[in-house]
């Protein structure tokens, strides 16, 4: 014990600052980017319809809802936590905003019509409340986020079910309709909202004190506590941020799809997690950011969209997506190990 303590003075203080070590330490950022370039090049060659302006627009629109949800999830994963309730919260928020909007007479839902702004505020309050429940479960009661948000996934799905009772609602407030399915100067509003939210997330993480705390808590939670940070407050905040981002994504998603119904967002859970992790944000916390999430979004977007442009068995698509995700996870873990070696 003590004898080995005294032997911890390795003589390799002067490290070579060459290109190889730099690349190794940046592998987390480089690998996803290379994947993106490779996939884009591959589909551009394989299909003449892939590399067109129209299709780039398609891809942007297709990743927008995932992108909005992934902003909040990036905060959570940076803190080395997880939020499995994002898709459910998106779904219930989308349903709630429709529930508070006057529907056509043939829609058989006992809804409570309200002015548009009130419907939006109530829906936002709902997702914030659900996020707060996640936050309290995680920090005050001490339930691991994996389990807590798993429960919340069910709770939010349950609320959704009670609100729509198997029916489909179509109307949402005009503002949501515009942002979700309208466009300005040829650019869909939903892409603009996603871009603004991603930018906002990036600015918060990079330039604010709160953002720094998120990285510090994720990098070494114990050290953050010993530095006198209120770790529980920070963890609670990221859970609420995640829920609110999911809620916004859900409202715009409902307008984008043109309907609000049960289980509408189920695929967005895996897509959002995949976007964050494929982009290179560390599942162990403290490394990565919105920049990585954007790259991850494009990798997924290009992959999903590109597979539609090439002639491929549609069932095989699912398997290919799984394999790409696995490869990204391996790189994620491997990059973490390389960094730790570089730091020791």
């Amino acid at each position: 014990m003590t004898s080995s303590d005294s032997a911890t003075t390795p003589a390799d203080h002067q490290r070579s600052r060459g290109l190889a070590p730099f690349l190794r330490s940046q592998m987390r950022n480089i690998a996803p980017f290379l994947t993106l370039i490779f996939l884009s090049a591959f589909f551009a060659i394989a299909s003449p319809s892939f590399a067109t302006i129209d299709n780039v627009g398609n891809i942007l629109t297709q990743v927008s809802v995932t992108g909005i949800i992934a902003v909040g999830l990036t905060f959570v994963i940076l803190c080395a936590e997880i939020d499995l309730s994002i898709a459910s919260i998106a779904n219930v928020t989308g349903i709630a905003v429709a529930y508070f909007t006057l529907q056509e007479s043939y829609v058989n839902i006992a809804n409570v019509p309200m002015p548009g702004f009130a419907a939006i505020l109530l829906a936002l309050a709902l997702c914030a409340l659900l996020g707060l429940v996640n936050a309290l479960g995680l920090t005050i009661i001490g339930i691991p986020s994996f389990i807590m948000t798993l429960a919340m996934m069910q709770i939010a799905a349950g609320v959704s079910a009670l609100l729509v009772r198997g029916q489909i609602a179509y109307k949402v407030p005009p503002l949501i309709t515009t942002l979700g399915s309208g466009s300005i100067g040829g650019i869909p509003w939903i892409v603009i909202v996603a871009a603004v939210m991603l930018l906002g997330g990036h600015l918060v993480l990079t330039y604010t004190r709160f953002g720094r705390y998120v990285y510090m808590v994720g990098g070494n939670r114990e050290a953050a506590e010993f530095a006198g940070l209120n770790v529980k407050l920070i963890l609670g905040s990221v859970m609420v941020i995640s829920a609110v981002c999911s809620g916004i994504g859900g409202m715009l998603g409902v307008a984008h799809f043109g309907s609000a119904q049960q289980n509408e967002f189920d695929t967005y859970l895996l897509d959002s997690i995949a976007a964050v992790v494929v982009g290179g944000t560390s599942l162990f916390g403290g490394r990565g950011g919105i920049g990585n999430t954007i790259v991850g979004l494009f990798v997924l977007g290009v992959l999903n969209n590109g597979l539609d442009h090439v002639n491929i068995d549609s069932f095989l698509k699912i398997l290919i997506r799984g394999l790409i995700l696995l490869a990204a996870l391996i790189i994620n873990v491997y990059a973490q190990r390389l960094r730790e070696q570089a730091a020791d």
Binding site: Y207, T208, R209, R212, Y215, M216, A224, A227, L229, A343
Partner: peptide
């Protein structure tokens, strides 16, 4: 338990005083 090994020295030093030198922005 007390330091952030993957972060630069200055972030390790400033963590305790951020509250004082920056209200919102770093």
């Amino acid at each position: 338990a007390m330091l952030f090994h993957q972060e630069p020295v200055y972030k390790n030093i400033s963590i305790s005083i951020l509250e004082r030198i920056s209200a919102l922005l770093l």
